[in-house]
């Protein structure tokens, strides 16, 4: 009897514990993670452009950078959970006030990175240039509306 009660208690305790650890990421960590992913996208964009505009060799690296960009592009949509709009962040509250419009920019960015990947994979230089510009416009467009200026 006592044994059974103990087991039940233990099980409940474990459930509570595991429940806790998956449900609640600290907002500070969610913000850190968001910035880390953004910085990773930037690093691949920078490396990509150095190759793409002929400033370094390494043509064979190009696909690695667009693969990473396209993969990170699909992660944008989970980077802005509710409750991560305050603290050490430049994300503006507008993100959570107009989720639909923000969502459109997330989708557009995901699409543009996928198109860049496709253009590079196809070896199509003109399409690559065009798609790279579209990726840049999607980064710039979102930062313009949803990222705070330095203050």
């Amino acid at each position: 009897m006592r044994q059974a009660r103990l087991t039940v208690l233990l099980t409940l305790g474990m459930l509570a514990f595991t429940g806790n650890s998956t449900a609640a990421t600290a907002p500070t960590d969610a913000i850190k993670y968001r910035k880390a992913v953004m910085s990773a996208m930037a690093a691949h964009t920078s490396a990509f452009s150095l190759i793409n505009f002929g400033r370094v060799e390494h043509q064979d690296h190009l696909i690695a950078h667009v693969d990473a960009l396209a993969a990170l592009g699909t992660q944008l949509k989970v980077l802005f959970p509710a409750g991560t709009g305050t603290g050490d962040t430049d994300a503006l509250p507008l993100i959570w006030q107009e989720p639909e419009k923000f969502g459109q920019l997330v989708t557009a960015s995901e699409k543009s990175t996928a198109e860049l990947r496709a253009a590079v994979a196809a070896g199509d230089k003109a399409a690559t240039m065009k798609a790279f510009k579209a990726v840049g416009d999607s980064c710039k467009g979102c930062h313009d509306r949803y990222r705070k200026e330095d203050d």
Binding site: F132, K140, G141, D144
Partner: peptide
């Protein structure tokens, strides 16, 4: 000079970040 040309054309900073706020309208 190439960093500047790319920035003025696309808005990309040398670290791969993209300018936002009022500068993105200047670029566009």
């Amino acid at each position: 000079l190439d960093d500047m040309l790319l920035f003025l054309e696309l808005g990309m900073l040398p670290n791969g970040d993209f300018a936002g706020s009022s500068m993105s309208a200047v670029i566009d």
